[in-house]
Amino acid sequence: MEAPIGVIDSGVGGLTVAKEIMRLLPNETIYYIGDTARCPYGPRPRHEVRNFTWQMAKALEKKGIKLLVIACNTATAVALNSLQKYFSVPVIGVVNPGARAAIKHTKRHEIAVLATQGTIESGAYEEAIASLSSSAHVVPLACPTFVPLVESGEYKSTMAARIVAAGLQPLKQASFDTVILGCTHYPILQSYIEKTLGKQVTVLSSAEETAKDVQGILAQRGELATGNPQHKFYATGSVPIFKDIATDWLALSNVAVERIQLTSND
């Protein structure tokens, strides 16, 4: 089935998930919306995040997607259940895949979760990890400086390492062997995070497990594509900034990006 896969995020972070889907399923077309004008979602009230997520989802529904990935942990935590009930196509989030990845890799069942304020306050990762392992201990940490760093395009600058090191300072005394990057923006900073935490810690994102879920669902439904992908990207904010980051992260030479205006659900 040649219909596109929809991917939504608060900004450019979901590109980390899109990249993994492209790698695993190279024949699939992705339609992506990044709500860069209203990013970050982490500090926003739950009802606002839910409303914004629905706006993006409905915009992609009109474009005929066959599956929707909420590639934002904060949005997954507040909107996944309601969207799954409403949509006729499958809707998946990134929290459960992230929790699965952490449980697969941890040796001591001591897991640190780095995420936005909204995701941490939701307790979504604690709940997802507890459903997989009753013995796991979770160390949650909100990293509010990380998303603006990525969205600004300054993630390769000299200050990036300092910002990451400062953000991770509260983990100095904590015990853990595995870190789950509970925000899809954070893998863009993964090299800095790994350098700060040391080689003894495994740092994981939800992207690979999420892409496997997409593959499994489409295969089960007999909807895997066989044609040439025609990816489309939409941003609510700056198109040039989004295009620069997408071109860099996805290693694509010709990224088609358009400005999109999202309408209210009211």
Score class of each variant (00 low, 15 high):
96 N>Q: 07
143 C>A: 02
187 P>T: 00
180 I>M: 15
187 P>M: 01
93 G>M: 12
42 G>Q: 03
216 G>F: 09
14 G>N: 05
67 L>M: 02
96 N>Y: 06
110 E>T: 05
116 T>A: 00
127 E>P: 00
191 S>N: 11
242 F>C: 01
138 V>Y: 04
187 P>L: 09
97 P>M: 05
121 E>L: 02
31 Y>I: 08
97 P>A: 01
7 V>G: 13
152 S>K: 00
38 R>Q: 12
98 G>H: 01
51 N>Y: 06
119 T>N: 01
59 A>S: 04
91 V>L: 14
47 H>N: 15
36 T>H: 01
167 G>C: 03
178 T>F: 09
263 T>L: 07
113 V>H: 15
252 L>K: 08
161 A>M: 11
191 S>P: 07
11 G>L: 09
40 P>N: 13
36 T>C: 04
195 K>S: 08
49 V>N: 06
27 N>P: 09
253 S>P: 13
2 E>C: 00
225 A>I: 08
129 I>R: 13
2 E>A: 00
236 T>P: 15
156 K>H: 10
224 L>N: 14
26 P>N: 03
254 N>A: 09
120 I>F: 08
53 T>D: 01
256 A>Q: 09
247 T>Y: 05
236 T>Q: 10
14 G>Q: 13
220 Q>L: 05
173 Q>T: 02
154 E>Q: 05
218 L>P: 02
151 E>F: 01
174 A>N: 04
225 A>F: 04
43 P>M: 03
183 C>G: 09
67 L>A: 15
66 K>I: 13
251 A>S: 12
46 R>S: 15
232 K>V: 08
